[in-house]
């Protein structure tokens, strides 16, 4: 009786083992799995969709606190990224300006320092830039735009900032000439962004549209920098010299980045 019981157990174990072996080592196992997947797939789809919907619903409820925190974090991140974006676009602009300057060949002619305009006082024809003593800026250094237009000269230097006296400032006066000619004169600021070309000899013929550039005579500015265009000529037989209004070629509203000439 005892033996037959053991035999029974042994037989059952052998049967189960052979059952598993047959299922796993022959393609029959795959067939069985395939059959069950086939008949279960419609039910599984329903379960899957329902589970997905329900878990989404509960996830929203359980994660409200997290979502709030995440939202705040993301907002903060957006702000940081926006700030970074602004910095990047500033750098891009600066890069473009430098590239333009390189193409013109400014860097070959002069030693340059790029500066950013941080304040404008149009009524006094002054601008404030972000370079100062720390950057090696000294009083009297000429300031130009990337297109080689004369803007003015450094009038006051602070540790980190400098004031630029625009050429239209009444305190500004320097020698200039009509481009491609030997007509010399003195450019004087008249204030309010107006410039006068004075002391032009009577016998010299100048006309509207002539370009005025800096001359080597004064030594204040390097020669050949564009000052502006002759706008209106005033000639009087009673006076030994003729005068002309110069229209500045730069637009003060658009000035953002400037070059300070440190060597010429």
């Amino acid at each position: 009786m005892k033996l037959s019981y053991r035999l029974k157990i042994g037989l059952i174990i052998i049967l189960i083992a052979s059952f598993f072996l047959v299922l796993n080592l022959t393609p029959f196992g795959k067939e069985i799995k395939n059959f069950f997947y086939l008949i279960s797939s419609p039910i599984q789809k329903i379960f899957w969709k329902t589970g997905n919907k329900i878990s989404d619903f509960f996830e929203v409820i359980f994660r409200i606190k997290d979502l709030k925190r995440e939202n705040e974090e993301l907002k903060l991140k957006i702000q940081t990224l926006e700030a970074e974006n602004v910095t990047i676009s500033e750098l891009k602009k600066e890069n473009e300006i430098l590239r333009e300057a390189l193409e013109i060949g400014l860097e070959k002619e002069f030693g340059l320092q790029l500066a950013q305009v941080i304040g404008k006082d149009v009524s006094q024809d002054l601008i404030l830039i972000n370079k100062g003593l720390k950057d090696g800026i000294l009083e009297g250094f000429p300031v130009i735009s990337q297109q080689k237009l004369l803007i003015g000269k450094i009038s006051e230097v602070y540790k980190d900032f400098s004031k630029v006296l625009l050429i239209s400032n009444p305190k500004s006066s320097f020698d200039a000439k009509i481009a491609d000619s030997d007509i010399f004169g003195v450019v004087k600021g008249k204030g309010n962004l107006k410039i006068l070309f004075d002391f032009i000899p009577q016998e010299k013929e100048i006309k509207e549209g002539d370009l005025v550039v800096t001359s080597v005579l004064g030594g204040i500015f390097p020669q050949g920098l564009l000052v502006g265009k002759i706008n209106e000529v005033t000639k009087s037989d009673l006076k030994p010299f003729q005068k002309a209004q110069i229209q500045p070629v730069f637009n003060i509203g658009n000035l953002e980045k400037l070059f300070i000439i440190t060597e010429w």
Partner: peptide, 15 residues
């Protein structure tokens, strides 16, 4: 057990 297994492998998987 068939339905329990289906529930376990497709419904509760989302939790």
């Amino acid at each position: 057990f068939y339905f329990l297994t289906l529930l376990q492998t497709s419904f509760f998987l989302h939790f």
